[in-house]
Design a protein around this nucleic acid. Structure first.
Lengths: 337, 337
DNA sequence: GTGAAAGCGCTAACAT
DNA sequence: ATGTTAGCGCTTTCAC
């Protein structure tokens, strides 16, 4: 069943059918109705390959996800997929390992799948203009920005939270609860990811409150996963390092940390408070419920798609959206006196 | 950069380039080398739309996921994506709500995206032959089967665990630990999903051990999510129903249940044991660690893809694979005396 | 072993 | 408002 068949069935030319298919105005109401009804009844669906071929583009958006099984991304991915589909586009997702280069992957997909645009989920934040030259379609960085200014702000888009400020807020909360020896649970100090940004917020909060930055209070796990956090915190406790609170850059890692604390015989929040950023659903259900700053995951995904499609359709320009987090009080932070 | 340009650059015909591109044997070694090197150096990537157009198929596999944010699916989806990509195919994912019809969605995608095959993740298990007539490409049911026999076994493929038997095993474990009043935390008794299958295993275990099936011990949440489970169990406890153990059809739901128990002042496992099926990573980190039967998620995804691609490439027939679970002892089950 | 040429199904000038 | 036609980039007979 091709456009030709439909044309024949309707007694019109294929151009007319094509016009109806593409919602062009220059078709008589009568013909439009006729064509539409035949399409309906014959179950005809246009061949996308052919459309893409002539348009030299396909209505496809690429999603490059770094950090394979991060549960934080799950909801965002769902939101992105739903929004892309709702707009009549197709989403093609590709995950990459933490060692791979997302820009290269995006560039390959762009050509391979003839993408109209790309969403990067969870990437580095220090792209150089040279790197990005490989990308010829608009793209949006979802859940992270490029605050170090290696990029001109109008050469890319992003949707994220104010990582540094939110981290600052989390640490300040601990400080306000009387904590003075606050450990930071991070991926790495210099990995150019949100880990680094949030770590900066941690340092800033210490500085502002006149606390020294103590190396032994920085727990680098080298990754973002629950197991890595568990092991790193367990090791830190084994070393006998003292602290009364942990600021974790991610809920997931906080959950790993809480197990390590528990197994070391330290109760949360009695012996050690824990605060994090992300707002996973499961964090509300563990014991004690985790106090965390919730990212608006669904909105984040939706805004990313909306910004990207605006650009794809020539309706908008590069934008940077900072979304607010919501403080969700659990029971993992205790007031010290 | 098109095939034509490459041909010109090499001083050969388009056909020769095409032959090299498709690994045909009838090309002289010399020409093959030449073409390959030019392709390499010019960064040429064939236009997939054009290829698909002439082949009237695209190397695309559809993934239809039911049950939006079920964390259990996350790892499977990742495994599926990686495997599909490794095979040189493209994955297009679409999620549907719990009320939507996955077969209809699959049929639409099949035509719309010119799929070569479909993987259904988390669907119903009672398709009728008539329904499936809408599908013209091979498909695999991942993580569930069709044990009620509404379908001929050689008309579809599946990769799953033995839901009924594994549920039986879980309940039997509770029984062996001395539990006699065992509650079942399920979605619905008759929803034709794995919930129902596992519920049957629960009933079978009761029957075999001479325990009555008591309606008040069946906790139906109507969904698979953590919050629904939490609320349903909380309500059940409020009603004063007594039980010493809960068999949950999913880890996620067990986590919700554990919070409800905790808030009702009942310690796990002292006052109530909990066992589940799934094996989420986070279940190992909560307090107490959940005792659960782990599904081999990665393998499940991989086997689904392998079976499907075998069929797509005409190398194999419909198959049904039952994968074993692994008992992961947490600390949520206690021996009663 | 290689090349010429006919389409795959569609869109977009262009002509009417 | 409608029809005619030339490609989009590729694969695949079919000759040679």
């Amino acid at each position: 069943m091709t456009i030709k068949d439909i044309a024949k069935l309707c007694g019109v030319s294929i151009s007319t059918v094509s016009r109806v298919l593409n919602d062009r105005p220059d078709v008589s109401e009568e013909n439009r109705r006729k064509v539409l009804s035949v399409i309906q009844s014959s179950n005809y669906i246009p061949n996308n390959s052919a459309r893409d071929l002539v348009k030299t583009k396909s209505d496809t958006i690429g999603l490059v996800v770094r950090g394979v099984s991060n549960p934080f991304y799950t909801d965002i991915i769902h939101a992105i997929e739903a929004r892309i589909t709702a707009h009549g586009f197709t989403m093609v997702m590709q995950q990459i390992g933490s060692g791979d280069d997302e820009v290269k992957c995006g560039a390959m997909m762009e050509r391979d799948k003839r993408l109209q645009g790309i969403i990067f989920l969870g990437g580095r934040s220090d792209y150089t203009p040279a790197e990005l030259a490989a990308l010829n379609v608009p793209f949006v960085c979802c859940s992270y920005g490029n605050p170090y200014g290696t990029l001109l702000r109008d050469t890319y888009s992003s949707v994220s939270i104010a990582d540094e400020e939110e981290a600052h807020r989390a640490v300040q909360t601990l400080y306000d609860h009387g904590h003075r020896r606050i450990a930071a649970l991070i991926s790495r100090e210099d990995d150019r990811s949100i880990s680094q940004l949030r770590y900066q917020g941690y340092m800033k909060a210490l500085r502002e409150n006149g606390l020294p930055l103590e190396e032994e209070l920085v727990i680098s796990t080298g990754s973002f996963d629950i197991q890595g956090a568990y092991k790193a915190v367990a090791e830190k406790l084994r070393q006998g390092v003292e602290f009364t609170a942990i600021f974790s850059i991610a809920d997931n890692m906080a959950i790993g940390a809480m197990r390590a604390l528990r197994e070391a015989g330290r109760k949360v929040p009695k012996d050690c408070s824990v605060i994090a950023i992300d707002g996973l659903e499961v964090s509300e259900y563990i014991d004690p419920p985790l106090t965390t700053l919730c990212q608006p995951m669904e909105e984040m995904g939706q805004r990313s798609v909306d910004i990207l499609l605006d650009m794809v359709q020539g309706k908008g320009h590069n934008r940077h959206e900072i979304l607010p987090t919501t403080y969700r009080a659990g029971a993992s932070v205790r007031k010290l006196h």
